[in-house]
Amino acid sequence: MTAQDTQVLVATDIIKTFGEGDNATQVLRGVSATIARGEFVALVGPSGSGKSTFLSIVGTLLKPSGGALRIAGEDVLGLHERALSEVRNRHIGFVFQFHHLLEDFTAIENVLMPVFGAHTRVTGGFIERAHDLLERVGLADRVSFRASKLSGGQKQRVAVARALVMKPELVLADEPTGNLDRKSSDEVLRLLRELSRDEGTAFFISTHDPSIAQRCDRILTMVDGRLTG
């Protein structure tokens, strides 16, 4: 296995400029980063430094103005919309600050949603995995609860299970505990670490919280559109 094979993310000289001409604002100024399989990496930096923009580019939700990007060994910058959707579905999981569950669906339905990106129907294997993940995040007794009936911490745990249901190589988490109290925050982080270890999934976590960053394998610091460490 080569070093490239073990790297789920290779970002090289990523540039992102918003606007044009005199109004152009360069948010990312040549960001390069690699994340290996199973790694637990924190991305820290002040607000407006470009963390979320970089995470969005890595998540293929935003196109960079320049640079190169490989996800799970695949060059994704030249791909069209449908292929990008497939990359997101197969290789990337997302955990957002505000969980973003579909409130009209139950916990397990939310977890199973990504399955429909690649399959026309949910088979028994996925249902079993969804149950297993919900059990692991401590929500075995909330499987059939509507998302709207769950607490903030529970919702975020459902979001974690949802991010992992397709067994992605990389999970991007943007302030995953930013909306939780300390206890729930610790609980969610413990879960993320545990799942990362058990599933071999790499986590790339953007956070303002130094205590979370310190519990990661590696910390990348973004300042003014550049990684400084």
């Binding site: 939700l61 959707s85 990359v87 579905n89 197969r90 973003h100 579909l102 990504p114 990106g117």
Partner: peptide
């Protein structure tokens, strides 16, 4: 709108 955004982020296609 948010639901659509989240579904798209999972890789649910525009056609769906």
């Amino acid at each position: 709108r948010a639901d659509i955004g989240i579904l798209r982020s999972f890789g649910i296609g525009r056609g769906a």
